[in-house]
Design a protein around this nucleic acid. Sequence first.
DNA 1: CATATATATGAACGATAGCTCATATGAAAG
DNA 2: CTTTCATATGAGCTATCGTTCATATATATG
Lengths: 115, 115
Amino acid sequence: MEASAALTHVHEDIVRRVNEIMPCEEELFDLAELFKVFGDSTRVRILFVLFESEMCVCGLAELLGMTQSAISHQLQVLKKAKLVRYRREGKTIFYSLADGHVRAILDQGMEHITE
Amino acid sequence: MEASAALTHVHEDIVRRVNEIMPCEEELFDLAELFKVFGDSTRVRILFVLFESEMCVCGLAELLGMTQSAISHQLQVLKKAKLVRYRREGKTIFYSLADGHVRAILDQGMEHITE
DNA sequence: CATATATATGAACGATAGCTCATATGAAAG
DNA sequence: CTTTCATATGAGCTATCGTTCATATATATG
């Protein structure tokens, strides 16, 4: 009922059109959570490394000059967001990019900041 | 000199290729800052509204059921990231999307979460 | 100038995030 | 089974973020 409350500043047909395209609460939450993952330069650096090659945790740590623990924590965040995959080979675990969306999103972001 | 320090876990040619594609520190920072802006559902909702129509601050506040202050603060964040523009008309200020990257980035994000 | 309306802004508070440190898990080798 | 190496994880600390509240700025009107 409150959705039809009088909105003194917004025309009725705009309210209707907005309601049509606005994602549901869950999608909005998931979308924001996804972009939060891209919103940290450590994680972005990890993703750029994985553009070139799959890599183990200690390799990423060495290459980025950070502790194994810090990298591992961030890899869990990337994994939870389904942005990276991993495979085990003995004691080593190799991480790689999950799909092409990662590149597409970062490319769009790069375009925005470099114009 | 430290860039050529021995990396026991990473092959030399991978280090070189990563260094070639890795954005500089400033770009990495700006990129992460940009995605942080998309990493809040209130700001995402504002952007979805602006897909349909430019809108004043109190219109956004009414439509999204939030205070004028909260919306205004977030609009400043969006403005700082160059994601929205504004024009004044008397006492009212109308906000609108700055460019097409906003849509492209959100579309890519939606694709990722809905698959 | 005083008032009303629209918007912006600074301080404060609670919640969240990223790193460090210590420790746990898990696989291979002896 | 014990040791070793790679990785994961939980607790704790500091910093940052989003909202609220109070107030300031700015434009129009009388």
